[in-house]
């Protein structure tokens, strides 16, 4: 879209599109320290409407919704980012290796096919039941195992034509090892695909981690957590809608803004791969 404009304009446009995600993630990370009230002490009546004291009103126990909102995002954001990075990174490397070594590629795809048959909620319950003390890490592990099969199909498909390109052949014929081919020759040319995939996997990770929180797998009351807030306060949605809408909106905004940033970072012009054949 900004393909032929030069100078500061495309850079500014990119910055503007990255900014919301940075702000939101930054706010979630420092939230616990800037919360105006303690997250576990009632400051107002249960499901009280917003006042000057508690801007977004009170939750089921009269605790400050704004404070809990500020405090409840950090774990979700960190877990989702970690899952998205792990899933995208693993899938990108596996896909590229599979494109260079067809035998490995076929093996990876068959395993992915099997894993994809597993419903995600069932998988989370399975992992957390078999690893009761795992907490967040159990959820993260489950989300990675569930995410990689989908992602690897995509990266394998994107890497296949790149692996056939003349420059990869030239590098292989020139004596380069597999690792160099994957990391230096193929992956840099999959940057757009990998970044887009990262955005998608982040949304999926937020969804999955929030689902786990909603199912009370992971953080337990009285911890502040956006997903937990939605579940705890859904009974009083008519009395104080903010107690449910605010964390819901936060989850949605987070997913949207990260996706926007990922697509802004994907190269739009120039160094993209030349069409092969």
């Amino acid at each position: 879209m900004t393909a032929d404009t030069r100078g500061a304009t495309p850079r500014t446009a990119t910055a503007v599109r990255i900014l919301p995600a940075l702000l939101l993630i930054g706010l979630a990370l420092v939230g616990p320290w800037i919360a105006p009230h303690p997250i576990d002490t009632p400051v107002t009546a249960p499901y009280a409407a917003g006042t000057g004291e508690a801007l977004l009103g009170g939750d089921q126990l009269g605790r400050d919704v704004l404070s809990r909102l500020l405090a409840g995002g950090r774990d979700l954001v960190l877990a989702s980012l970690l899952v998205a990075v792990l899933v995208t990174g693993t899938a990108a490397v596996l896909g590229a290796v599979g494109a260079v070594r067809p035998l490995v590629g076929r093996l990876v795809e068959r395993i992915a096919d099997v894993l994809m048959l597993l419903p995600s909620v069932l998988a989370i319950l399975l992992v957390t039941l078999s690893w009761p003390g795992g907490g967040r890490f159990a959820v993260i592990a489950a989300a990675v195992v569930l995410g990689v099969p989908y992602a690897v199909r995509l990266t394998a498909g994107a890497a296949a034509p790149v692996a056939q390109a003349g420059y990869v052949e030239a590098a292989a014929a020139g004596g380069e090892r597999l690792w160099y081919l994957v990391v230096r020759e193929i992956l840099p040319n999959l940057r757009a695909t990998v970044l887009t995939l990262f955005g998608l996997r982040f949304v999926a990770a937020v969804y999955l981690v929030a689902t786990a929180g909603f199912l009370q797998v992971g953080p337990q009351p009285p911890a502040a957590d956006w997903a937990l807030m939605i579940r705890e306060n859904s009974a009083g949605i008519l009395l104080n809608p903010w107690a449910v809408v605010a964390p819901g909106a936060a989850v949605a905004l987070l997913a949207l803004s990260v996706n926007l940033a990922a697509s802004a970072l994907a190269p739009q012009t120039g160094r993209k791969a030349v069409p092969v054949q």
Binding site: Y167, V168, A171, R184, E185, N189, V274, Q277
Partner: peptide, 12 residues
């Protein structure tokens, strides 16, 4: 190689 277009890594 014959095809000069694909012969060079576009990101280097």
């Amino acid at each position: 190689p014959q095809n000069p277009l694909g012969a060079l890594n576009p990101s280097r």
